[in-house]
Each structure stands twice: as C-alpha cells, then as structure tokens.
Simulated scan of single mutants.
Amino acid sequence: MDAREETLSILNKIWVKLQDLPNANPVELGAFFVILSFILVFILMAVLTCVTCCCCCCRKTRRSII
C-alpha cells in the first residue's frame, strides 16, 4: 500500500469515528476532547512561534537599516 492509500485509510477511519461521536460514551467523548485540545494547542503554538519569529526578524532588519 502506498502512502496515499494509507493516508486515505486513516482519514476514513477518523471520519467513521467522528460520525459515531454523538452516540459515544462519556469516556470516548473525553478522550476526543483531550486529543482535540492537544492538536489545537500544538497548532496555536506553532503559529505563535512563526509570528514571533517573523516579527523579530523584521524588527532586526529595520533597525539595521536605520
């Protein structure tokens, strides 16, 4: 199986799990929200890191020109 098929298979499994979420028990709902919050925090930290890095680089460039 190549990488594309494997990725589609994983996404299909995730989609099936998400469709069953309204009927899930409280433990599964809790696990879902913990994983979701971890992913969101990771994305937020990555974006903040990129923004901070870009702002610092721009400031250094402006100071060296002036």
Rank of each mutant, 00 (worst) to 15 (best):
A3C: 03
W15D: 08
L44M: 09
I14A: 10
N12Q: 11
D20C: 05
I14T: 07
P26K: 07
A46V: 02
E28V: 04
D20P: 00
S37T: 09
F32N: 03
W15R: 15
E28Y: 04
T52Q: 13
L8K: 12
L21W: 08
C56D: 14
L40Y: 07
V27C: 10
L36P: 00
C57M: 04
L18G: 05
N25T: 04
P26C: 06
A24V: 00
R4N: 11
L21M: 10
N12K: 15
D20F: 10
W15Y: 10
F42N: 08
R62P: 00
R59I: 09
C53L: 15
L40D: 07
V47G: 00
L21I: 06
I39C: 13
V34D: 13
M45N: 01
V34T: 13
V47Y: 01
I14V: 04
R4L: 13
M1N: 03
R62D: 06
V34Y: 14
K17E: 03
L18I: 01
C58N: 06
F33M: 09
K13D: 13
T49W: 12
T61K: 09
M45E: 02
I66M: 11
C55F: 10
K17F: 02
V51K: 04
P26V: 04
I43Y: 08
C56L: 14
L36E: 02
I65G: 01
L36C: 08
A31L: 13
P22W: 10
Q19P: 00
S9K: 10
D2K: 04
C55P: 00
T7V: 07
L8G: 03
C58V: 07
M45G: 00
D20M: 12
W15C: 14
L44D: 00
L21K: 05
E5D: 13
F38R: 11
N23M: 12
S37M: 14
L40W: 15
C53K: 08
C58M: 05
F42L: 04
L11G: 01
G30S: 14
V34W: 14
L36N: 00
A46Q: 01
I10K: 06
L8N: 08
E5P: 06
A3H: 02
N23T: 08
I35P: 02
K60Y: 12
G30Q: 14
C54N: 15
L48K: 03
E28W: 10
R59V: 04
T7L: 01
E28Q: 07
E28A: 11
V27D: 12
Q19C: 15
W15G: 05
V51A: 12
A24R: 01
E5S: 01
V34F: 11
L48D: 02
I14R: 01
V41E: 06
C50F: 12
A3V: 04
D2A: 00
T7F: 10
A3M: 03
A24H: 01
S37F: 06
T61Q: 09
